[in-house]
């Protein structure tokens, strides 16, 4: 069954087509990579799934239910979590607080629970703290121990990326959207994270969509690759078939003889 199904979707910013008549689907348990040259509309694609951008036309179905007209928080509540291309942590909150706040939509305690310190409140606090630590320990010892109560701003770049993934995991999603998870990491770190992405599926049962520029990562993790260019899907299939597709090569390298339309810059 298709977990996420996107039908004939377009997003327009004042006459500029960021996405055009896009069809896309993800099956449960799949890892799909979305690649494409800069400005191909990849981040817009994520923004649109997570409800931060409203599509101009088309339909998004998640487990058979439409995601249109939902707030980002409601999308997350339905089981889709994401990370950001330019890591956006709550820098002045502690590492533990970062993963605790991400469980907001899975918890229910309101003002009175906190004021009266009810049993339910206390057990919920303990539960989300434990789950938070569990999520953090997925990345080894880097984010736990004495780190738990340090502000996120002291973390190194790679650890910030890891914490961002942990934070997305803490929302207890079924579909995880990772926006360039290894950008800025060295080869060793990126290889390690690639392995972790595989474990995210096998151990945690997440279905994953990744935007990535690093082709070795794409090759290693993806079941299927979708190539976007100028807001349109130009190819999809296994890594090998896509990598050899002339259209894809053209999108990345340009045509031998310059086409007039190819100069059109799509900026986002």
């Amino acid at each position: 069954m298709n977990m996420l199904q996107i039908l004939d979707l377009s997003v327009t910013f004042g006459g500029l087509h960021a996405l055009r008549n896009l069809d896309f689907h993800v099956e449960e348990g799949e890892i799909v990579s979305v690649i494409g040259p800069n400005g191909a509309g990849k981040t817009t694609f994520f923004n649109m799934i997570s409800g931060m951008v409203t599509p101009t036309s088309g339909e998004i179905l998640f487990e058979g239910e439409s995601l249109l007209n939902l707030d980002p928080s409601q999308v997350t509540e339905r089981g889709i979590a994401r990370t950001f291309q330019n890591v956006r942590l709550f820098a002045n909150m502690t590492i533990l607080e970062n993963v605790m706040v991400a469980q907001h939509c899975r918890t229910h305690q309101k003002v009175f629970g906190a004021l009266l310190q009810t049993k339910a409140f206390k057990s919920e606090e303990i539960a989300i703290r434990e789950y938070g630590e569990e999520v953090l320990s997925f990345f080894g010892s880097r984010l736990i121990g004495y780190r738990l109560n340090q502000p996120a701003s002291v973390l190194s770049y790679a650890n910030r990326r890891r914490l961002e993934i942990a934070r997305a995991m803490a929302t207890r999603p079924r579909l995880l959207l990772l926006d360039e998870p290894v950008a800025g990491m060295n080869p060793r770190e990126s290889a390690e994270l690639t392995a972790l992405i595989g474990r995210l599926r096998s151990e945690w049962g997440f279905t994953i969509v990744i935007i990535e520029h690093d082709m070795s990562v794409v090759r290693d993790v993806s079941d299927r690759v979708v190539v976007l260019d100028h807001g349109e899907t130009i190819a999809q299939g296994s890594y090998d078939s896509v990598a050899n597709d002339p259209k894809v090569v053209e999108a990345y390298l340009g045509r031998q003889v310059q086409d007039k339309n190819a100069d059109e810059e799509t900026s986002s």
Partner: peptide, 15 residues
Amino acid sequence: MTTTHDAKLTSRVLW
């Protein structure tokens, strides 16, 4: 694995 769906989802249109 730990995803629970017993909770009612928030409605589409907020009050």
